[in-house]
Design a binder for these strands. Structure first.
Lengths: 346, 346
DNA sequence: GTGAAAGCGCTAACAA
DNA sequence: TTGTTAGCGCTTTCAC
């Protein structure tokens, strides 16, 4: 890599000189403002091309206060995040949307509360216009921190507090869970267990609620808490089987846990779906299509949810900046629908 | 989220005023320069605390030309990236190192060559001090693009061209592959096949070379190309089995492909490892520990490799900035060792 | 050791 | 329509 880095980048001043106009005019052309006579504009554009001019973002940000950058903050006290493709998909959706609107994605990974101070400092430092926060656990202080830093925020997943102003995007966990159980019921299953997620995440709570909506008088013993890992799912399944030998259906709160459950079932010699039908949640394709048998599950469009988070935040920013492109839709949380995907396990 | 965003952030001027010093002195304290008398420094620090001052990065960058930010560019024409936890782990390593050195991680995802122009513009825009590039395929123009933008770069994985100046970090693919085959040989296996990766990636090429190093006169038919997906692995395995019914060992160029191979083996009623021993590559824990049986594989420390990429880049930047902290180690590509991890499949 | 002053490259009033 | 002129908030000589 040769040190072409030493060729000093041209400034607006340079291109103005070359085009024989003032810096202001050059700036107008570069920023696409109306009202520059065509021939002049053309000369400026040519100069830009010839010199390979690219605006210095720092200088621009200094005056406009717009950074055209959004932070994605991920609380990741556990390593779940890295075993679950969930996040990657969501980020991709976010990246898509941000890119389309010419915004940058700054990734802030935290490994624990120790890092929060750093994140707070960063957000307060005015590097970004807004933040997208994934706060996996109920007691998380990240959102509060962003608020304190005065950075507009959208949360991934329903937060556990209710506050009219908080913007978030989540899927219809409760409705999806209901569909899962209905599906099992429709298959004629009568003894249905639920492998729940840790109840410190609203998604887990909502899915459990959905289960209870449909099976209000299920034994409490039919509900076992997993931990969103395959192991957890496997253990929970074993417990369920020990307690209810006649179990004929299971709704697991995640595909990953369902994959663990499938494994236990196989080890115990239960056929799926003949003996026990299994429904997961998420539709993580790399998991659900690859279990044996492939998993029937509740699909949430993860990538789209990421996209929506970004879009919502950007709209919020536009609104704050006053106006922006036709403020039609209201600024409020988004809950996306889920969908039953039938494969072989139920 | 209340609009505390309207509270204007304090500037250096503000804290200088409050501390009763000049802006220059305040700046010195904030940046930890020597040579400010203790009592003054103390007053400044107090003002910083009281006002919650955080330096405006844009303003600072404008004069120092340091952005303290590094771009991570991922070429992702296929969606492999999202089914493979590989990347996430690498990013984590990068993030760790960057964070420790107070640098920011800007994520640039590309979905195809169309996006390259945007990335080029971004890099040239001087938003970042350097770039970490993951260029999965041989014909990728991303590295060239970064070079043109004059942005110091470190590549993830050995690039396919040789050029003394190019910095990269990779694991010892060839050596690891050799170890894999030796392990199989040590188990008494004599008919060993190789499920290779697409040969447009140097990692695949190197692993195949390693295989050939140890089994120089293996039938060409013993080498089948997969595509780094479970399906590809499954198909390749089927092909191998059809051609060589007496096959007793397989080295797959990735854990993900190995998992597919395992599936085929199970379907065909071959016991693993009794009938056919299988060795993977990568040691993606969420895959290797969860196959049935758990996978013996070649481990590369993915997270550490990410960390090394970041460290190498940062050192390169320091060097360019002249001096920096004790330039001991030379600036050259890094190849990390691999390690055999024995589980149950071989 | 500390302060005054000169910009970094850009945008946005305001004049012309 | 175009140019002139102030800064945005910070670092950094250069005097004192």
């Amino acid at each position: 890599m040769s040190d072409s880095s030493y060729a000093p980048r041209p400034t607006l001043e340079d291109i103005a000189a070359r085009a024989g106009v003032s810096r202001a005019t050059a700036s107008r052309v570069v920023n696409g403002s109306e009202g520059v006579r065509a021939p002049l504009a053309e000369r400026v554009r040519q100069a830009v091309d010839e010199l390979g001019y690219v605006p210095n973002q720092a200088a621009r940000a200094l005056v406009t206060r717009r950074k055209d950058a959004v932070a994605v903050v991920v609380a990741e006290p556990e390593t779940r995040f890295f075993s679950d493709p969930f996040f990657a998909q969501q980020v991709r959706g976010i990246s898509r949307e941000l890119t389309a609107r010419d915004n940058q994605l700054v990734l802030l990974l935290t490994e624990g509360a120790d890092d929060y101070e750093r994140v707070g400092r960063y957000l307060a430092g005015g590097h970004v216009d807004g933040a997208l926060i994934f706060s996996l656990h109920a007691d998380d202080t990240l959102p509060a921190l962003a608020e304190r830093a005065g950075v507009p925020t959208v949360i991934g997943g329903r937060p556990d507090w209710s506050d009219g102003d908080t913007l978030y995007v989540d899927c219809d966990n409760r409705g999806g869970a209901r569909d899962a159980v209905h599906h099992l019921l429709g298959l004629g299953r009568r003894r249905i267990g639920h492998i729940a997620g840790r109840q410190d995440q609203t998604a887990s709570v909502d899915r459990l609620d959905g289960f209870r909506d449909v099976a209000p008088d299920a034994d409490p013993g039919l509900i076992v808490e997993g931990d969103f890992t395959p192991d957890g799912g496997a253990r929970a399944m074993a417990e369920l089987l020990d307690r209810y030998p006649d179990l004929d259906g299971v709704f697991a709160a995640s595909d990953v846990m369902a994959s663990g459950a499938l494994r236990t079932l196989r080890q115990r010699g239960r056929r799926v779906p003949e003996d026990v039908a299994v429904v997961g949640f998420d539709d993580i394709v790399s998991v659900a299509e690859w279990t044996d048998p492939p998993l029937t599950t509740i699909r949430q469009d993860i990538e789209e949810m990421g996209q929506m988070m970004a879009r919502l935040l950007l709209r919020r920013l536009d609104a704050a900046a006053g106006g922006g492109p036709a403020d039609d839709a209201p600024l409020k949380p988004i809950v996306t629908p889920t969908q039953v995907v039938v494969r072989a396990s139920a």
